[in-house]
Structures are given as C-alpha cells and as structure tokens.
Amino acid sequence: MSEQATGNGALVDIRGVEKVFRRGAEDIQVLKDLNLEVPAGEFLALMGPSGSGKSTLLNLIGGLDHPTRGTVSIAGERIDQLSDHRLAAWRARHVGFVFQLYNLLPVLTAERNVELPLLLTHLSKAERRAHVATALAAVGLEHRAKHYPRQLSGGEQQRAGIARGIVTDPTLLLCDEPTGDLDRKAGDEILGLLQALNREHGKTIIMVTHDPHASARASRTVYLNKGQLTREPND
C-alpha cells in the first residue's frame, strides 16, 4: 500500500468543506468551512456532541457522501470530484469501515463476512482465504472463523468487523463509535486492537467517539461543535 501524502504532507486533506442537508424547504448546514489535515500513520479521535456532524465528516472522508462545497483529498486524490461509480471503486481500494453495530451479515460466517471486500478484487479463492486468515489472526479471531455473528459475543463481532475493515490493507481505517455498543472490558480490547494496528502496522485511523476513555487511546483528538472543528471541547 502506498500512502501518498498531499503537498502539505497530510494523508487526509480537507479544505473549506461545507455540507448542507435539505429537509423539505429547510436547509440544514451540518459542516461549516471545515479544514482538517490527518498525516499518514495518525490515530485521530473525533469527538463532539450528538448532531455536531461527526458521522457526516466521517462519511465525506470515506467517500460515502459528497460535500456541498470544499475539497476532500485522500492521498493526493480529490475524491469529492469522483463519480458514484469511481467512488465505489475507490472505497473498495482505500477505505476500511468499522461500525458501532458491527454491520455483519447475519447469514454469513465470520470468515465469509471478512471476505466480502475481497470479492471485489481479482484475487483467487486461495488468495482470498489466505488474506482472510491473516486478518482474523490479526484480531485474534481465527478460532471463531466458522461461527455466525449470532454465535459471537459483541466484542468478537466487532473484532470480525475490524478484520473485514483491514482485510484489503486499506489506506485509511474509519471507525464510527467502534466501542459504543460494547461493555468497558470488550471496549478496551477493541481500543487496544486499534492502537496496535496503528502502532505496529502503521494504519491511519480516524475514530468517531463520544467516549473520552476511547479518545485517550488516540494520538490526537479534535472536537466538532456545531459543524466546526476545535482543539478543546468547550472552544
């Protein structure tokens, strides 16, 4: 994986971004003239109250949505200018997602869930199996590979979700409240795992969280308040 940074050295470079949602006749401005740089290899925590625009920002960085104004560049590529089709291909290559509710397909085993992003590659079946085994081993879930999500605990399901997020070795790992549905012990294990992926494997991680305990594990924390970034929670 090449993690080409932009001219200013950042892997993620967001400039003057605005996002407006239209609800009936009303325009709701969620993000206002937002600028953010995330260097490659950083573990960034994004905090803020509900409705502050954290998930919207994460969606823009992950190419799930387009900004109303401004630019979003990842590894030097302007993803805000990509068509839906090219954006889907870009996501498959560059982004791993980890969700609060794990978002595993209940009809597939853990290993089949982890394999899903690899179905979009040209890897052979044997190569896919090898990648899945590596990802499951990285999250310590190789012994639960054949289990369905309903047979796994919350922590194990989130491990499977992380394995799915890293199986393609993406440029960025985006986590939306990854510990929000877990108890403290399981949450700590997941945070430890994310920390290890960042420190030992150099993964760039952006994590949305409400939990100061979780943000403390990140290398940097930024706050989002009323659609704008601040360095401190009460700025």
Binding site: G62, L64, H85, A88, R91, A92, F97, N103, L105, L116
Partner: peptide, 16 residues
C-alpha cells in the same frame, strides 16, 4: 436495507 448499504460502503457499485 442496512446490509445492502454496507455492501455499497465497502465498494459494491450500483451495477453490482
């Protein structure tokens, strides 16, 4: 719907 959304998030195109 949520599962289909996930597939799109991880890179499945509209045609797929």
């Amino acid at each position: 719907t949520g599962e289909l959304g996930l597939l799109k998030a991880i890179g499945f195109t509209n045609a797929q």
